[in-house]
C-alpha cells in the first residue's frame, strides 16, 4: 500500500471530481423528486438516464452528420443546445410514459410492487435498446471540439468547465422553480401531504407527470454530458450510475433537492480521492464503506428529516 499525499494536493483531481459529481447529482435529483411526491423510488431512473444519452446521441449524430455533409451550417454550441433541448423534451415524454404506464395503475398498490415495477421497466428499456440498436458500442459524436488549457500544471478541457457550469445552472434553475413558481409550490405542497393537497384542487396526476418529466429531462442532460465526457455508449450503462446516484439520493436525505446535489458531488469527490490515497483496487470498497459510516451516524442523510412532518422539497 502506497500512501502518496502529494497526489491529494493536485488541483487536477478537484476538477475531475466536480465533473464526476455532476452526473451523480443530476441523476440523484430525479430519484429525490419522485420520492418526495409519490413516496417511492423510481428504479427505472438509471435507465432513463441511458435513454437520454441515446436520444442525445441520435440527435447529435444527425446534426453533426448534416453539418459535415454541408447541408447545415451550425456552430458546435448551437448543435449542443439543440441536442440538449431535443433530448430533454423526448426523454421527458419517455419519463411521463413510464409514470402513466408503470406507476399510475399501481399508485395505491403496496410499495414493494411499485418498486419492482421500476426494476422491470428498467430491464424493458435496456433490452428494448439492445434489440433496437444491438449490442454494438456507440461512439458519441464530438459536438464541441475539445480544447485543453494548461493553468499552472492543471489541464482543464473546455468540456469539463462546460459540464460543471451548465449542471450547476440546471440545479439552480430547479431550485428557483420549486421555490418561486406556482407549479413548483404545488409540488412542494404535494410533497407535504399527497392525500390532503388533492382535495384543494391540485391534481396529483398532473404533479406526478410533471415531476417525472423534470427528473427525466435532468437525466437526459446528465446522459448527454456523460456521452461528451466518456464517448462510449452501451445499453446497460444506466445500471451502475443509477445505483450510485440512488445512494446519493438517500445520503442527501430522502426527498431533499439540496441534499441530492450535495451528496452527488460528495460521492464524486470520494470516488476520485479514495484511489489517490489507497490502491485503486479498493476504490469502491473504501468509498462505499465511508458512505455506510456516514449513514450510520446520520441515518436520515444530510438534509432528511425523521418523519415527513416538514416540507421535503
Amino acid at each position: 500500500m502506497t500512501l502518496n499525499l502529494q497526489n491529494l494536493l493536485d488541483f487536477q483531481n478537484i476538477i475531475d471530481a466536480l465533473q464526476w459529481g455532476s452526473f451523480y447529482a443530476l441523476i440523484a435529483l430525479g430519484y429525490s423528486m419522485v420520492y418526495s411526491i409519490l413516496m417511492l423510488f423510481n428504479f427505472a431512473h438509471g435507465d432513463i438516464f441511458m435513454v437520454g444519452a441515446y436520444i442525445g446521441f441520435g440527435i447529435a449524430s444527425l446534426l453533426v452528420g448534416l453539418t459535415v455533409a454541408g447541408s447545415l451550417a451550425l456552430p458546435g454550441w448551437v448543435i449542443l443546445i439543440l441536442t440538449l433541448l431535443g433530448a430533454m423534451c423526448l426523454t421527458s415524454i419517455v419519463g411521463m410514459a413510464v409514470e402513466r404506464i408503470g406507476y399510475r395503475p399501481l399508485r395505491d398498490a403496496p410499495r414493494a410492487s411499485a418498486a419492482i415495477t421500476g426494476l422491470m421497466i428498467g430491464i424493458i428499456l435496456e433490452q428494448g435498446n439492445l434489440i433496437l440498436l444491438g449490442a454494438k458500442r456507440r461512439s458519441f459524436p464530438e459536438i464541441i471540439e475539445s480544447q485543453t488549457f494548461s493553468i499552472g500544471g492543471v489541464d482543464i478541457t473546455n468540456i469539463k468547465i462546460m459540464i460543471v457550469g451548465v449542471s450547476l445552472a440546471f440545479m439552480l434553475a430547479l431550485h428557483l422553480f420549486i421555490k418561486k413558481n406556482k407549479w413548483g409550490m404545488a409540488m412542494r405542497a404535494m410533497a407535504f401531504d399527497y392525500l390532503v393537497v388533492p382535495l384543494m384542487g391540485v391534481s396529483i396526476n398532473a404533479i406526478a407527470r410533471m415531476t417525472f418529466a423534470i427528473g427525466s429531462a435532468l437525466a437526459a442532460v446528465a446522459g448527454i454530458f456523460f456521452g461528451m465526457a466518456y464517448p462510449v455508449l452501451e445499453p446497460t450503462m444506466g445500471i451502475v450510475y443509477g445505483w450510485k446516484a440512488f445512494v446519493a439520493a438517500i445520503l442527501g436525505g430522502r426527498g431533499s433537492i439540496m441534499g441530492a446535489c450535495f451528496a452527488g458531488f460528495l460521492i464524486g469527490f470520494i470516488e476520485i480521492f479514495v484511489p489517490l490515497v489507497f490502491p485503486s483496487t479498493l476504490r469502491d470498497l473504501i468509498a462505499y464503506s465511508i458512505i455506510l459510516l456516514i449513514l450510520v451516524y446520520r441515518p436520515h442523510g444530510f438534509f432528511g428529516e425523521p418523519y415527513s412532518a416538514k416540507l421535503r422539497l
Binding site: N4, N7, A17, W20, V232, V240, I272, S280
Partner: peptide, 15 residues
C-alpha cells in the same frame, strides 16, 4: 487498477 464497467479513470491517470 479499476473494475469492469468503470468509465472514469481520472484519479488513476492523475496518479
Amino acid at each position: 487498477s479499476f473494475t469492469t464497467k468503470d468509465v472514469d479513470f481520472s484519479s488513476q491517470l492523475n496518479k
